[in-house]
Design a protein around this nucleic acid. Structure first.
Length: 768
DNA sequence: ATAGGGTTAG
């Protein structure tokens, strides 16, 4: 049965409603009817019967409606409430049918009641939203509401907003919202609009709506739902229409916080973790503390995310602060919290504090807090931490403890940590014993185990055993990987066996193990040190062919190697290469070049380099000045060297170290200026730079050449005071000279560690 | 929250 509206004012509606065939709606009423104040029971019964009768009268075709009866039923005094009219309309067979009813009300009702019409209209919208083709129907109904001047109820508004949003009619949503009266634009309606805007990627518009709600005096405050919509929308990045900076999110979180609205725990954790990941750990911490002050219910996961970030940035104090706040808020640390603390303390080599935390989790404090059972990760972290500071024996103690605790059997990681610890301590045998033990204990060795042992043997000078071990393991089906080969390459390079190193490199390729950047770097480093620049060049091209990029260390090796060969053309080539690759020269690059140019006497170029590096924001270090000073000395310009020495301290604020003093003292002594050298010795005392055996040797030679015995005895005493041991050079100089001048007794005293000059201002000086 | 390879310059 098709229905045509009699009013020619709505031609489009005719078409739209013709197809409407949905019958009586059996769906439960989910939307609230408004106004909703429930009538008293007697009135309620009366209302129910009115609704029932009205529906009976209305559900037939509108052409057959008994208008007399209807008017009698609906328009007698008292007039039926909006609620009753809503219920009637809601029970009609279709939206077009209900619309006819609305028209009837509008035309026949003796009491003009806008609210009643609005409620009835809401019922029509609800019917239409469940009918096929609701998209166009609802849009057309929206136009009807405007043409008939029927204000939308709040539920009508949200229904339409949702429908428009779903169907991409964002502009229409906004227009509809703007047309609403202020009292209808409440939090609920705004939430729906914000959700529509966010989903359509209109972030800024959504923020504008939110901002208004966040104004202190505004009528409609944000609710938890507003927070949910905003924060869950922001967390799903990508379809927001633009990137929303983390700072913006943080600002919003804090503003919402003023209203007691917070993202859920997962949201807060995500924001904190993202801040930490983007290097804004301090911001994360501030946010955490502010949220606490605002009364947000923070969970342990959030604390853990923050602790992880703080740990990475080494903010141990702030970690302690977070722990203290957790306690204040009764947030129980879990095993992960303790894992983070222990891990970071270990990484900073503060193992004793890590052990303290470990004790604390075992319920070290009487009844204070719940004890958390350490798990395998905690044990492994601690064992690794102990091994890294050379306390592998204590690591063994923990291993035994693990065997006793249930559910905490030592695993591959446990043993790998211990094996590495013993190997690094030079105890390869213990490493191998642990390797045997792990198999017995059911911890399966893996590639890390093999790599660690191979590396350990290499470090301890047992390269051939390492090669053999790697081979044997491979036969047994336990393979090492590129790291094992890298250790071998490195070891062979270190003993200058470049041929073997290359052999290992090719063996690695043959065995289908592709070298990574580190493998290439090591080979290049070895080749440059062996002055084999042609080979180094060819490995560098292989590195590039394999898709890797040389890093600054690698370039520095190459540059240093070419400097040694006086191949400045090649050095230039490397520098050009670097520039093209966007790898900036660092302090070592500059030091290498400055050292080269000043040693070859090209001081002009060296100083030009010095200027350029500062311009590039690379500041000269004590090594830079050392290179210049050394070169000036070698070239016979000790005076120039002294000028640089005085300038570095005074104007550049770079403190000279032992190396600088040794170069100068040696040079001054050789140039017959022992007096100046002695003043440098005093200078060292003032600056608290400790002379070394080399320093004393240089001085003794100079003093001998000038025959200055008194000063020599004073320096011998100083050597004893500072527990600086003489070496064979010291003994050679002193023995020869002192025997010749008949001071053998003093020499004997010196050898026995007794002071040789009985009195003198110098001794008391140095004691003060 | 846990394990393995190099750091070049005076």
């Amino acid at each position: 049965m098709s229905i045509a509206l009699s009013t020619s004012k709505h031609p489009k509606l005719i078409r739209v409603f013709e197809s409407s065939t949905v019958g009586y709606s059996l769906l439960p009423r989910r939307l609230s009817t408004e106004p909703t104040a429930l009538p008293p029971p007697s009135r309620q019964q009366n209302d129910d019967s009115i609704v029932k009768r009205a529906v009976q009268l209305l559900k037939i075709s509108y052409r057959e409606w008994d208008t007399t009866q209807l008017i009698h039923l609906l328009f007698s005094d008292p007039a039926p409430s909006s609620r009753v009219l809503f219920q009637i309309a809601r029970r009609l067979p279709s939206s077009s049918h209900a619309l006819k009813f609305l028209q009837f009300l509008q035309e026949k009702s003796p009491f003009p009641d806008t609210q009643a019409l609005s409620s009835t209209f809401q019922a029509i919208l609800e019917l239409a939203s469940r009918e096929p083709d609701s998209r166009t129907n609802l849009y057309d109904l929206y136009k009807v509401s405007k043409e008939w001047n029927i204000p939308l109820t709040i539920n009508s508004a949200t229904l339409l907003l949702r429908c428009f949003g779903r169907n991409g009619l964002v502009e229409e949503s906004v227009i509809l919202f703007n047309e609403l009266e202020h009292s209808s634009k409440n939090t609920h309606v705004r939430n729906v609009l914000i959700s529509v805007l966010l989903r359509a990627g209109h972030v800024d518009h959504a923020f504008k709506v939110v901002d208004e709600m966040l104004q202190p005096e505004f009528d409609y405050r944000p609710s938890d739902v507003t927070g949910d919509i905003i924060f869950s929308g922001l967390m799903k990045r990508g379809r927001l229409g633009r990137t929303v900076e983390l700072e913006e999110i943080v600002e919003l979180v804090l503003k919402f916080g003023q209203f007691g609205v917070f993202p859920n725990s997962i949201g807060i954790t995500q924001i904190i973790a993202m801040l930490c990941r983007n290097g804004k750990t301090n911001k994360a911490c501030d946010l955490f503390l502010e949220l606490m002050n605002l009364g947000a219910a923070l969970k342990v996961a959030t604390c853990n995310a923050l602790l992880t970030g703080l740990g990475k940035d080494r903010y141990i104090d702030r970690m302690n602060e977070v722990m203290a706040r957790m306690k204040e808020m009764d947030i129980e640390p879990n095993v992960i919290t303790y894992g983070i603390l222990i891990n970071h303390l270990c990484k900073f080599r503060r193992v004793d504090e890590a052990l303290e935390v470990f004790q604390r989790m075992n319920g070290g404090q009487e009844g204070d807090g719940v004890s958390v059972e350490p798990d395998i990760v905690i044990f492994n972290t601690l064992i690794d931490g102990l091994c890294k500071v050379g306390r592998q024996e204590e690591g063994l103690g923990l291993l035994e403890r693990m065997k006793l605790q249930r559910d905490c059997a030592p695993n591959t990681v446990t043993y790998n940590c211990l094996i590495d610890g013993f190997c690094k301590a030079g105890e390869t045998e213990s490493g191998l014993e642990l390797f045997d033990e792990m198999t017995r204990e059911g911890a399966v060795p893996n590639a890390v185990t093999v790599n660690t042992l191979v590396d350990g043997m290499c470090r301890n000078g047992r390269i051939n055993s390492a090669v053999k071990f790697l081979d044997e393991m491979r036969m047994k089906g336990l393979k090492g990987d590129v790291r094992a080969y890298t250790s071998l390459i490195n070891a062979f390079c270190n003993v200058n066996n470049i041929g073997k190193a290359m052999e290992i490199f090719y063996q690695m390729l043959r065995e289908g193990c592709s070298p990574d950047a580190m493998a290439y770097y090591n080979l290049i480093s070895g080749l440059t040190q062996a002055r084999r620049m042609d080979d180094a060049t060819s490995v560098l091209s292989k590195l590039k062919e394999a898709g890797f990029h040389p890093d600054i260390v690698c370039y520095n090796h190459m540059i240093s190697g070419f400097c040694n060969k006086n191949r400045m053309d090649k050095v230039q080539e490397m520098l050009n290469d670097m520039e093209e690759a966007g790898v900036n020269p660092d302090i070592i690059t500059y030091n290498t070049l400055i050292s080269y140019f000043s040693k070859t006497g090209d001081f002009k170029i060296a100083h030009r380099m010095l200027n350029k590096m500062s311009k590039d924001g690379v500041w000269p270090t004590v090594v830079t000045y050392g290179a210049l000073i050394h070169a000036y000395c070698l070239n016979g310009h000790v005076d120039e060297a002294m000028k640089i020495f005085r300038g570095m301290d005074a104007t550049r604020k770079v403190a000279p170290n032992t190396v600088i003093y040794n170069i100068l003292i040696d040079s001054l002594c050789k140039n017959n200026d022992v007096e100046l050298a002695l003043t440098l010795m005093d200078d060292m005392k003032v600056k608290a730079v400790r002379p070394t055996t080399t320093t004393y040797n240089a001085m003794f030679k100079g003093l001998r050449d000038k025959g200055l015995l008194k000063q020599t005895f004073e320096l011998m005493d100083r050597m004893i005071e500072q527990a600086c041991n003489p070496d064979y050079i010291t003994m050679e100089i002193l023995t020869e000279w002192l025997s010749a001048v008949g001071e053998t007794e003093k020499l004997k005293q010196f050898v026995h560690g007794q002071k040789v000059s009985a009195s003198g201002a110098f001794v008391s000086d140095s004691l003060s």
